[in-house]
Amino acid sequence: MIPSLLCPDQPLRLVDTHSPSASARQAIIRVEDLSIVFDVPSGHVIAVDRVSLAVTQGEFVSIVGPSGCGKSTLLNAMAGLERPFEGQVLIAGEAMLAPRPEIGMVFQQPHLFPWKSVRRNIAHGPRALGKSKAEALRIADDLIAMIGLTKFASAYPHTLSGGMQQRVAIARALANQPRVLLMDEPFGALDAQTRAVMQDNLLELRERINATIVFVTHDIDEAILLSDRVLIMSAGPGRILKDLQVSLPRPRSSAIVAEAAYLALKRDCLDLIRSEGRRAFEQMEIRT
């Protein structure tokens, strides 16, 4: 009953699995043979090693992997914050060489502008894109209502809790109505309870916005709960190990973690990560 949920034979490049022309039209994000190399004092480190993937319009894809596996670097490349060493990232057919306002990003830390109120933080993007002040504030007020912080509209970020700050950061990223929302461990710095609330919030939010979401996390539960598809990355050098379809029904809530189908999926992920961890560890021993 369970194996049907998994697609173990699914290759790395989703584009190639379906009829190429149709999925090529649908794929909003295409990462093609992307490598990213960092210069370090002792030479260089391959953070991302010839990764290819495609994300379909409207899809929620998580990238899971151990710390330092290059998942954040991969996301930064999608954001245009990191230049490819080889290969390219195409979003809506255009190479990402610099940030574009139609691609929103939420970081692990909220990075709110401390000198702006909640309202002005959210209005920042529309203002930067040349919208009138009134229009920008109207967009902000709508989003503030959506994240349930109307009472805190004129509060400054430092007066808010970590979870509230991150909700504002999400609203700020949504204010430009991005086609793609990139999230880099957005709940990683929050306590377990707040994180669960935030995950439910994000699930609800997702029903209301039609952005494609790429979500980086090291938390497998979080990835399965939120995503349509989970990409598992290996460390050193960063590669995509597995592409898992999550066919659990929506709408979902964090209650899903007790269901058998969910647990089977999670066991599969853990096995993969464990064996990969062992392989990486052994490889390291051989090298040294």
Partner: peptide, 12 residues
């Protein structure tokens, strides 16, 4: 992080 956030929002 502030600068990156501002970049992502299209700040001129």
């Amino acid at each position: 992080g502030l600068i990156r956030a501002a970049q992502m929002l299209g700040t001129p």
